[in-house]
Design a protein around this nucleic acid. Structure first.
Lengths: 133, 133
DNA sequence: CCATAGTTTTAGAGTAAGTCTAAAGATATA
DNA sequence: TATATCTTTAGACTTACTCTAAAACTATGG
């Protein structure tokens, strides 16, 4: 699963252009939940000729192809998570940092009794903060 | 709890100006989860002299005072929910409609075992659709 | 190696949600 | 009535994001 980015793009039918690989090299490995503009700022440092539109196009492409998950959890802006397996989230209000919570750490029951709802997916969104050990 | 809007504002230390009451008359009773601009459009029909800034100021004031809950669940936009009691949400992707799910309908366990997290609040966010009976 | 058709990238304009500002208008109290 | 405080306003500004049309790539067949 953690093979190189070129192969992961090809595996989803995405032509691995230099720009896309540069973006993927960052966004498919990070645990930072960056926004699109944060991805742009970051990737530009190592790959200077890069327009904003390309970053947005590429991120949206990755989402469509299942390489990224789009999250709308906090501060009115969309962030991206390369962890596309089901999992829950903790939003740290002060810092805006978002942490992943493993799926198995939390159990949710009762959704199946809501017979008037057809549920495709769900997650727990928690607000709070990470303890400074 | 469902007493008139003027008293509810006063109860939170908010001066019940005509504008605020007009906005509250709609937003504190609706189950529609409107965005700020939707509130503006709607309230303007019955209260024409109303600027966008006033609507945003008032909604933010209501949130600070605990009369409204701000939700960031779908489509990158903030919506408001006068149901400030804890509850869960279902986001209908196609329509953008958000439905409340009663707190007691769902049980979540395991969050307390995450000892490195200090959790203030949480909710289940489900994606799917309401069955057309 | 060239032609060409398709794909990708670009700069910059456009859009929409939301915030800020400074002035004007209300309101309350003494 | 005077004055201090609070509220509202129009419109400019900001930020996140999308669109557009042209330019630059890339792949393939001949």
């Amino acid at each position: 699963m953690d093979c190189n980015v070129v192969d992961r793009l090809k595996g989803r039918g995405i032509i691995p252009s230099a720009h896309r690989v540069a973006i993927g090299d960052y966004v498919l490995r990070t645990i930072e939940h960056p926004s699109a503009d944060q991805v742009w700022e970051r990737v530009k440092t190592s790959f200077p000729v890069l327009s904003r539109a390309t970053v947005y196009n590429t991120l949206n492409l990755f989402v469509r192809k299942g390489l990224l998950q789009e999250l709308i959890l906090a501060e009115g802006k969309v962030v991206f998570d390369p962890n596309v397996a089901d999992h829950h989230h903790l939003v740290e209000e002060d810092s805006g940092i978002i942490y992943d919570i493993p799926w198995d750490a939390v159990q949710v029951s009762g959704l199946d009794t809501l017979t008037d709802l057809e549920i495709d997916s769900y997650q727990v969104v928690a607000r709070g903060r990470k303890r400074r050990h």
